[in-house]
Design a protein around this nucleic acid. Sequence first.
DNA 1: GTGAAAGCGCTAACAT
DNA 2: ATGTTAGCGCTTTCAC
Lengths: 353, 353
Amino acid sequence: MNTAKKDQTKHKVTSRDVAERAGVSRSAVSRSFTPGAYVSETIRKKVHIAAKDLGYLPNALARSLIGGGSSLVALIIGPMASPHDSLLIEAVTCKLAELGKRVLLVPVPATRVADDSLLEALSYQVEAAVVFAGTVGQQAAERCTRIGTRLILFGRVVDVPDTCCIIYDNVAAAQAAGRYLLRSGHRKIAYIGTRHNAFSDRERHAGLSHVLHEAGLEIHAFEKGDYGHDSGYQAALKMLGSMDPPDAIFSSNDGMALGAIDAARALGIRIPNDLAVIGIDNNPMGDWAAYRLTSWGLPADDIAKVIADEIIHKTAPENNDGDTDVDATANHPRTIRLPLTLTLRETTRRMTS
Amino acid sequence: MNTAKKDQTKHKVTSRDVAERAGVSRSAVSRSFTPGAYVSETIRKKVHIAAKDLGYLPNALARSLIGGGSSLVALIIGPMASPHDSLLIEAVTCKLAELGKRVLLVPVPATRVADDSLLEALSYQVEAAVVFAGTVGQQAAERCTRIGTRLILFGRVVDVPDTCCIIYDNVAAAQAAGRYLLRSGHRKIAYIGTRHNAFSDRERHAGLSHVLHEAGLEIHAFEKGDYGHDSGYQAALKMLGSMDPPDAIFSSNDGMALGAIDAARALGIRIPNDLAVIGIDNNPMGDWAAYRLTSWGLPADDIAKVIADEIIHKTAPENNDGDTDVDATANHPRTIRLPLTLTLRETTRRMTS
DNA sequence: GTGAAAGCGCTAACAT
DNA sequence: ATGTTAGCGCTTTCAC
């Protein structure tokens, strides 16, 4: 006939219930669940027992309402054409979990405009939003900075104060890839980009183009895919079947590079003897025995770390050590270019010179 | 000198601000943002203008607090060893977005126990939780049902009332795969499972074992991997390098099957002549020209639809038509077995008989 | 150290 | 149709 037992049945158990059962005030309950608060061990223990009995769980939503922050971070994602994307969001999710942040996953609609997804996220009071897909307009971006939500763009750039853009150092990587192929004796270097007119893609194209120009050459052939294996396959098929096929293909991502390799095989073209292939991302797939793709990339965990740092840096209360960090906001880098490293495998031949 | 303009600068803009600027009450603002509410067009328009001016966005967290539900669904995920996982969570995320639900992504720690992740999610008042990774204990599961949070397990089973388990029809698929290989003349059929002692995996193993027994055979060889390509590669290498290698390999997922194919190639074993390979998931990768893997599976979108239906079904207000649906809770299917279909490609040869 | 009271932003009765 | 009031679950001054 214990009245406390009755509550066990249905209704949502709140801090009031716990307070009642423990014979303390709601504040006491609150404090008992707040790490560094003034509560006697006696009460804290009583409360925790009552809480366990009742199956009490603090309501994170109500807690956020007060002002402690939602601990939510939005990840704005598109269709994960490349497996690399999923690796990345996984890495970021784990990293953020370690830091006590929760991830809100928001897909970008087919229109490929992320603005609405962003607002959606903002209405959930996310402390930061990381955009992996779609384009974001000035307005939406400014809105984020206005309400103090950290906005981080990955692989895309918008010039809005306080917005952080993280991108591969595409130009450098493309140039290095081009030079490498050049020195290996290739002269007919083709490029597989994407139809989405992505920022990163343009940079890669430009980088390759530039270094070829220096050598008095041009991009030998140019096709566009969608980052998927099959589109790389089709693109390569077209190039390799032409009257004047390339002797090297630089692909804007690994997925399409793998497709290109398969296309070459289908055509009986030998890799790397007749055709060299280089990708970007250094996806684990590239290491498979069937492909052994040479690729430029950066481990997903490293990227995740950069992103997480960027979120925390602005989310965390300003650490007033008072030295270098003063006004960190202002001189915080607007654009971070991640240097890529080359993983040499077997789709490129050793340099001749 | 317009005082309203001043607010443009910093502070979080609330419904009160909008109300003030539009010269109406906060309820009016609330109503203006609630689809089927009693507001005059005049006011609704005024409010929306003021809102746009101020950059107002309703606070979804505060809204949830009231009782409308958080619209949040948790996805409990582990390391996405198989690309199929990421395809699935993407499909589910999109499907839920269509239905007005938001996704909270919660990783399972290395311990592979999902209970804490689940509680984590519950504290965010998720309306449902879909578990893709890790094990969930009775207690945690019961807690979900107690507070009315729909719990859905994918690929794993817990016998708790009101908990829905969605799994492939593993036994049927494994048996069909076994029979297919048998009829194709194979007698030395090996199995690549996983070390995680996963529920689905055990079912597949049992199904294959059973059908082989019927034919007076046993599983010819058994190795365990981790769903990754490389583990399949290693497993197959071991099997194929033995004194008495298998003439067919049934793999618990496509990723490892691909690895097995690569291993066979490395060893100069011809597929499908000397070795047949069958996978599970029917991952897009299986369709790549370099593999053309025969596989049992179900499109990610179809799976997502089942999951979403399961969430909505219980989330939606009970439709009191008063006929079949009475006490829908009780006769709601506890376990849903998804039938898999066979996609025949080129890693299996046509049947001899 | 602890409780009472106020309030986060919003919505759902209840009046008008 | 609109404004007023109360309250969702929590935290946080502010007294004691």
